[in-house]
Design a protein around this nucleic acid. Structure first.
Lengths: 88, 88, 88, 88
DNA sequence: CTGGCTAAACAGAACC
DNA sequence: GGTTCTGTTTAGCCAG
């Protein structure tokens, strides 16, 4: 292995190990989150709906409105708008 | 809002906020990882291949062995066991 | 290889190959779906919203109502019900 | 609804229905696959391991080689090249 | 240098 | 309940 290669190997190895360390931390936090959901479930809450709530709170209201607008348009185009709902 | 509802609200809110706090931490770490990749890229490394290396090291580091035992049985049955490999 | 093993090998191989054939067909259809979305996109439609529409049409309305009921309850508990929305 | 809207409605509906048709076909094939696994299970095979075999055969069958070239460079740089493997 | 496209990571759903 | 698999999201790459 050449000198410059040796330096590169050391440097690259350092990058890889930093990344692996961070990924471990990240996984630990993911596990913590799972634990909180499990605890909530133990207190009678529905995990699926809690996740929905978290997502809604996270979602940027501007983007949300954008999507809703388009969705309304498409549903209306298809005759599926809520106001057009009817007994079949 | 009733008493019991008030208690539930407080508890549910606490769960939600704990989760949101953890997700922020998780995102911070994800950003750190991105930074490391970016720094490595600035030093001339290829991000895609670095990720491949990280993945391979993770795969190598665990399990794999326990499934191989069961798997060998099936591969052998199929005539695909390593010892039966041959030039076609 | 024993007789019974030989029979098993033939049989297992047949199962595996039937599955692989079916998975190829399945993949071909997935690709077709992607093509349709791409074509729609080329005509100015928003893929993400189209997928939403498809999902909504598929979704069983009973299940949907169930989720909505729980969701309303949770949002109300958190003071996030639509009717309680306000400028912060 | 305007003329252009009418045209759009017809077009959008056609796209949606093509997608829904394809998804039905896709689902039918998924069901067929499940049936094959069930039949195999009825003949004494282990579904989980069969799925593993299918996955491995898929992995083996393609690409892999083209990334190895680039990968070798990095592994070598890390002192992880196969020929350099050794007891730690 | 921005925007679209492709491919990997993550989250949600389904199955065992 | 745990694990695998699908589908969504996001990040990196490339063309304009």
């Amino acid at each position: 292995m050449t000198n410059s290669g040796g330096v590169a190997a050391e440097q690259l190895r350092a990058f890889i190990e930093r990344i692996e360390r961070l990924e471990e931390e990240k996984k630990a936090i993911s596990d913590d989150i799972k634990d909180v959901y499990a605890e909530a479930k133990g207190n009678g809450y529905n995990i699926k709906v809690m996740k929905l709530v978290v997502r809604m709170r996270k979602q940027d209201s501007n983007e949300r409105q954008e999507i809703d607008t388009l969705l309304d348009l498409y549903l209306h185009t298809l005759g599926m708008a809520p106001s057009e709902e009817q007994a079949s």
